[in-house]
Design a protein around this nucleic acid. Sequence first.
DNA 1: GTTTGACCGTACGGTAGCGTATGGTCATGG
DNA 2: CCATGACCATACGCTACCGTACGGTCAAAC
Lengths: 220, 220
Amino acid sequence: MVMARRSTDDPQVPHGSPSDGPRHRGKTGGGTGGGRRRLTAEDWAAAALAAIGEGGLAAVAVEPIATRLGTTKGSFYWHFANRDALVDAALERWEQLHTEAVIRTVEAEPDPERRLRGLFAHASAASAADPLEVSLLATAAEPRVAAALRRVTDRRVGYVAGLFAALGFPAAEARRRGLLAYTAYLGHTQLGHAVPESLPGGTDRDRYLDSVIDTLLCRG
Amino acid sequence: MVMARRSTDDPQVPHGSPSDGPRHRGKTGGGTGGGRRRLTAEDWAAAALAAIGEGGLAAVAVEPIATRLGTTKGSFYWHFANRDALVDAALERWEQLHTEAVIRTVEAEPDPERRLRGLFAHASAASAADPLEVSLLATAAEPRVAAALRRVTDRRVGYVAGLFAALGFPAAEARRRGLLAYTAYLGHTQLGHAVPESLPGGTDRDRYLDSVIDTLLCRG
DNA sequence: GTTTGACCGTACGGTAGCGTATGGTCATGG
DNA sequence: CCATGACCATACGCTACCGTACGGTCAAAC
């Protein structure tokens, strides 16, 4: 009948700010940099997100992640009530880092067509290195994953459709092209991760991306 | 030191033909139709493929599948050496059923543009019902899955690029558009499975597909 | 300098799945 | 009518992981 001493339900953060003071140990301090510091819930969430990228949602396993963090389950069950709470934290982290942050960056560019090209370039480069989204798409059966996917998809498709609208397409057509662009991005990510040699590499890569955008902007 | 009595390495089929005579039990026969018949390796492979669709590669677990087939592990380890052999069989089955068979069907249509539209319509409908490909894409880390994906991708992209070439596009441009079309298909599959409400439904669906093909065929 | 509380280590029991061993059943062939 | 072999059931040991219980440690508060 003993519950976890701190659950993630109360949204306040343990210390003052994220990635706070180290609270390092006395004698074991001074390692090579990844040394023995006390962990925060955010450290666990980041590690869980990395694990999703490498092995899918099934890789969010407490004991292996604890090993990778150089700690034990005792730490985990202090910060989280159970494995599900860790999954929730990882998903929330993903929503913030991989959608809002990217849109903020792209918004710095004033010209809509350059925003679109910049977004494609960024997305193409980022997705090639990180199989995270592929893993998440594959776990849409999990309700919490599905909810996060729905929010992220709405936000992204809406943003891209807005770009096409800003480029002069009527609303319905802008929505269609935005959806086509986003599905092409998703498929591109899949291929880049599963069969990278099927995608144009080297100098062909930029030419291919330009050609895709030209096709998507083509008025016929 | 005892190995499996029949491994899948010898490619011959137990009985004369696939889905052969029932060899039903004596007293327990006469069930409702899914009754107690002896199983073949193909039955196991089909069940494993269904399991991949529902729960990813991790769902290819001997005991749960045995339960679903109404049998036990004892049957499985008669037909297969181990779990890996079952995965191989399922992948081989997927390659045959979800690529070659579809292309054969589409090839019946003489006009290339109608072939393209028919292929899109078929793929869009089939993928909405079956999350199988999503699961497979997410497991590209497994070498055997990656190999199957490479073969299937090459075949499909090559076929679609051939359609664009037949429609008059020069080879390099046909390849680019074929790749774009295939990535759009993959992304469409993802969305249809993860966030179905983000895709046009009802009567908008056909309009959307037409619009996508128009965009892909647009000469600009 | 003791106390407190945040944080971690470790031992334990439970479950799911893999693979093995071995015996049971039934149809066919002699 | 028994022997053979294809096919299945069951019990077993092994490993990985979940979640719990509880004791240990260290820094700050007093």
